[in-house]
């Protein structure tokens, strides 16, 4: 009786796109940085996602970013994509990406803000979470942790 309907299957595939599944299975930059200059913890109590973000900042540039922890596919993939993206960016630009991504995923009327000079196309893979209010927090967890790490807040951030 439960043949899976193609349309709805399509929606699911929209959330769990190949790129997401790939990054969830094989997260990039998934390790500790011993001489990190910035670090922060991110916790999503709803599903038990817990990650620690590390960043090495030299002058104004994030020369390396990484994370450790465990979580759902969305949160791990998002952290993996993020650490990939922000490596080599200035802190200012990385924070611009943070604002853009959280705006895009949480605000239905979001308009692309001023051009931040970073190609965020890859992160479109996360757009599927917009239809899943309880999952948006998973997708933005790593970004919140990055924000708190580089702006120097020491409390663990929670997306609850």
């Amino acid at each position: 009786m439960n043949a899976i309907d193609i349309n709805h299957d399509g929606e699911l595939r929209d959330l769990y796109r190949e790129l997401i599944l790939d990054h969830a299975r094989n997260p990039r930059h998934f390790h500790k940085i011993d001489d990190a200059t910035h670090t922060a913890e991110g916790i999503n109590p709803l599903c038990g996602d817990k990650l620690r973000l590390y960043a090495k900042v030299d002058g104004d540039v994030i020369t390396e970013a990484s994370f450790e922890g465990s979580g759902c596919a969305i949160s791990v993939a998002s952290a993996s994509l993020m650490t990939d993206l922000v490596t080599g960016l200035s802190v200012h630009r990385a924070l611009g990406c943070f604002a853009e991504i959280t705006g895009r995923l949480t605000n239905p009327d979001h308009h692309v803000g001023q051009d931040i000079g970073v190609n965020l196309d890859k992160l479109r893979a996360l757009d599927g979470v917009r239809d899943y209010p309880s999952r948006v927090k998973c997708a933005t967890l790593a970004w919140h942790a990055l924000n708190s790490a580089v702006t120097g807040q020491s409390q663990p951030v929670s997306t609850e």
Binding site: L15, G71, C72
Partner: peptide
């Protein structure tokens, strides 16, 4: 090794 939260979303879809 499917995270329970992912499982919950996929099940909801069905």
């Amino acid at each position: 090794d499917i995270h329970p939260h992912d499982l919950g979303t996929i099940l909801d879809h069905q």
